[in-house]
Structures are given as structure tokens and as C-alpha cells.
């Protein structure tokens, strides 16, 4: 298969997933409002101490992005049924293209998720101006990419299992923690006006490692879901 065919397949898979998501609205109309509600619940639980909320605001955003972002990454609309999987196999779709296409859709949805929740966090928590805040846009992108990579991979590992809904979060949450840690360290480093390069490099390396594993193991995983 040449590169052109591969990327065409990626585009088609991503387009299919976006169409299904557009029809069902699982991520956009259910998970995003749910995430916003979670951001509102936290101040009610920990008290309305404004300096404290300003301090914890970015961290709460990251935690909610991770926990609810997981729901976006392995949403039901991204889970193919057995006939769908068989059809994709019969069509000769490259499993790696399926992985990349699905991951691209999840990244896009997660970016929308973060773009909606970021202003909600600023309004509710008033974290103040963080020096060098444009770097946070890069962090948000790398976090979305990492979460979608881990989520897509975990979704493939648990495809077709009866325990999928309970097992996938157990796999995704601990695997995504390094992403959360590195993102939180970037916020802290920016606040202290320290170097963030190490953390950005850690995020990028994690993403690259999971992407390589995802592409290389796409075929064996696809074979196991038949």
C-alpha cells in the first residue's frame, strides 16, 4: 500500500467517525456539558475560598480534561460493532490507518472539549494571568493527542469485551497519568517562570512512543477482534 492510499483511508475513517459523532452527539452534547458540571461541582465540594480556587483552577481543568477526555476517547460512537469491523477488514482497510483515523477524530473532539472547558475554568476559578500562557495551547494539544492515543489503543484492546465500559477507564487512567503530571508541571513551571522544555519533551516523547506502539500493534489487535 502506498502512502497516498494510507492517508486516504485515514481521512475516510476519520470522516466516518466524525459523521457518526455528528449524528449521535455523544462527545459534544453529553460529555462536554458533563465536564462543565464537574468543574462547577468542585468549588461546592472544597469551599468557595477564592485564592484557593484560583490556585487549583488549572489543575482542576487538567484533571477534568483527563477524566472526561477519557470518555471522549473511548466513546460508544467510536466502538465498531462486529459487522462493521468485518466490513472494514473485507474492504482491505489497513488497521494502522484505522488506528490513526480514529485517533485523529478523538484528538479533534478532545481539542473542542478543551476549548469549551478552558473558558469555563477561567470564568469559574479566575486563575489569573499565567506568564507565558500561550505555551498552554501547545500543552492542551499534546494532552489531547496523548489522551486520544491512549484511549484509542485501550479501546482496541478492549474491543468487543463485555467488560469494556468498566475495564477501559482502568487501563486509560493510570496510563494517562504521566500526561497529567507533565502538563501540571508545565503550569507550575510557567508560574515560577522556569524552563518548561523538559516537560514538553516528556509529553512529546510519551505521545511518540504510544503512537509508534499503536501503529505497530494495530494489525495484531485487529486480528484478535475478528
Amino acid at each position: 500500500m502506498n502512502g497516498q492510499t494510507f492517508w486516504r483511508q485515514v481521512k475516510e475513517i476519520a470522516r466516518k467517525d466524525l459523521l457518526i459523532e455528528g449524528r449521535a452527539g455523544e462527545a459534544l452534547f453529553i460529555t462536554i456539558p458533563f465536564g462543565a458540571v464537574a468543574l462547577m461541582l468542585i468549588p461546592l465540594a472544597i469551599g468557595t475560598d477564592k485564592p484557593l480556587l484560583a490556585q487549583v483552577g488549572p489543575g482542576m481543568f487538567l484533571a477534568v480534561a483527563l477524566l472526561f477526555g477519557m470518555l471522549v476517547a473511548f466513546r460508544q460512537t467510536a466502538a465498531d460493532s462486529t459487522p462493521q469491523r468485518e466490513l472494514l477488514t473485507l474492504l482491505g482497510t489497513d488497521p494502522a490507518a484505522q488506528f490513526v483515523g480514529r485517533m485523529a477524530t478523538s484528538t479533534l473532539l478532545l481539542l473542542v472539549f478543551e476549548a469549551v472547558l478552558a473558558p469555563v475554568t477561567i470564568i469559574l476559578y479566575n486563575p489569573g494571568r499565567i506568564p507565558g500562557w500561550p505555551w498552554l495551547l501547545l500543552v492542551m494539544f499534546l494532552l489531547a493527542l496523548g489522551l486520544s492515543l491512549v484511549g484509542t489503543l485501550a479501546g482496541s484492546v478492549t474491543a468487543g469485551l463485555r467488560t469494556r465500559n468498566t475495564l477501559t477507564p482502568l487501563l486509560v487512567a493510570p496510563l494517562s497519568m504521566p500526561l497529567l503530571l507533565a502538563s501540571a508541571q508545565v503550569v507550575e513551571a510557567l508560574r515560577e517562570e522556569a524552563s518548561i522544555l523538559l516537560w514538553i519533551a516528556l509529553l512529546a516523547t510519551m505521545n511518540l512512543a504510544i503512537a509508534v506502539i499503536g501503529v505497530l500493534t494495530a494489525r495484531p489487535l485487529e486480528e484478535s477482534s475478528r
Binding site: 469485551l161 475495564l167 506502539i213 495484531p220 484478535s224 477482534s225
Partner: peptide
Amino acid sequence: LALRRSIPDPETRARRSAVLGIIAFVQ
């Protein structure tokens, strides 16, 4: 380990846990 317990078919179990074992080692 939870994944292994969830899959009754030995070949599917081996294949999927092999992949997860590789990803998990990143930690």
C-alpha cells in the same frame, strides 16, 4: 491482570495482553 481475566479465548487474551504489556512498560 484485569484485562486477562476479562477475555475467555486464550489466543485473543494472549494477543491483547501482549500489546498491553508493551504499552504498560512505558511506565
